[in-house]
């Protein structure tokens, strides 16, 4: 089993390394980040340097989340569309193992990229003579934890629908959108419009908001860390909570994806 897992993870990591789409995406974003880091080189103010550092770290982590989702989406859709799973499942390699390998390979890539971003943050802090704050570690660790859930969710979407549709669902029809709709319908009900239809719509939006995965489940509690890059001793627990949430989400998405893969009539 270890041999099979290793072989699949190696093949998937090779896929990421050679994916031109991911490479192009990464290059464009790195170019933009590099341009963003140019102005502080000509400034002497520590505050401005810190603001730039905070912005760069935030942008890079946001980019990492999109990249992680993209990796989950691509690894499934590319294999399904190229129909090369025929070569895998006609050997003693079970769908359970293959899917786990795909997830672990994306997670490994995400971890590596998170470490690179963390390293860049530390390097910039040193270059701009800023204290290296523990918030950098917290933000990177949280981004990695969140990316695990995103990878699993996008893998599930890619398994059951066309990749373009999956991307649209993930980017637009996500929990944030339905949260806003939920807030809007609740406000309308409070202002006096209490029709049955509106109540039903509110229930629907609320249900969808609860059902769809959240990107940052403890957003309110950790917002301060993202802006100040400081962590209070009592705040580290949110990292564990985030990890717990994304691992539970990943396990759920893995089971549904596996079910969908096994139910496919034609590989």
């Amino acid at each position: 089993m270890t041999e099979l897992l290793k072989a699949n993870i190696w093949a998937d990591v090779t896929f990421y390394r050679r994916s031109k789409l991911l490479l192009a995406f990464m290059l464009v974003f790195l170019l933009l980040t590099a341009l963003q880091s140019l102005p502080p080189l000509f400034m002497d103010s520590g505050v401005q340097s810190f603001n730039s550092l905070q912005q760069i770290v935030a942008d890079l982590n946001f980019f990492l989340l999109i990249l992680a989702g993209g990796m989950g989406l691509l690894i499934i859709s590319s294999h399904l569309r190229n129909r090369n799973l025929k070569m895998v499942f006609t050997k003693p390699c079970s769908p359970e193992l293959w899917l786990l390998s795909a997830y672990l390979s994306a997670a490994a890539m995400s971890l590596f990229l998170n470490l690179v971003v963390l390293g860049s943050g530390v390097l910039l802090s040193v270059l701009w003579r800023l204290p290296v704050r523990m918030g950098l570690v917290f933000v990177s660790a949280e981004t990695f934890a969140v990316s695990l859930g995103l990878i699993a969710f996008l893998m599930l979407l890619a398994m059951i629908m066309h990749p373009a549709l999956a991307a649209i669902v993930a980017l637009i029809f996500n929990a944030d959108l339905f949260y806003q709709f939920d807030v809007w319908t609740k406000a309308a009900i409070r202002s006096g419009n209490s029709s049955i239809a509106l109540r039903m719509v509110e229930r629907l939006f609320h249900g969808l908001y609860i059902l769809l995965p959240m990107v940052y489940p403890f957003d309110k509690q950790t917002q301060n860390i993202h802006t100040s890059l400081r962590v209070m001793s009592g705040e580290w627990k949110y990292l564990l909570f985030s990890l717990g949430y994304t691992l539970a989400l990943s396990a759920f998405c893995y089971c549904v994806s596996l079910f969908a893969l096994k139910r496919k009539n034609h590989i």
Binding site: T14, F15, N84, K86, M87
Partner: peptide, 14 residues
């Protein structure tokens, strides 16, 4: 068991 497919459905990036 070994299988040789008709169409080259291989991992083309390898």
């Amino acid at each position: 068991v070994a299988y040789l497919p008709e169409e080259p459905h291989y991992h083309l990036y390898l």
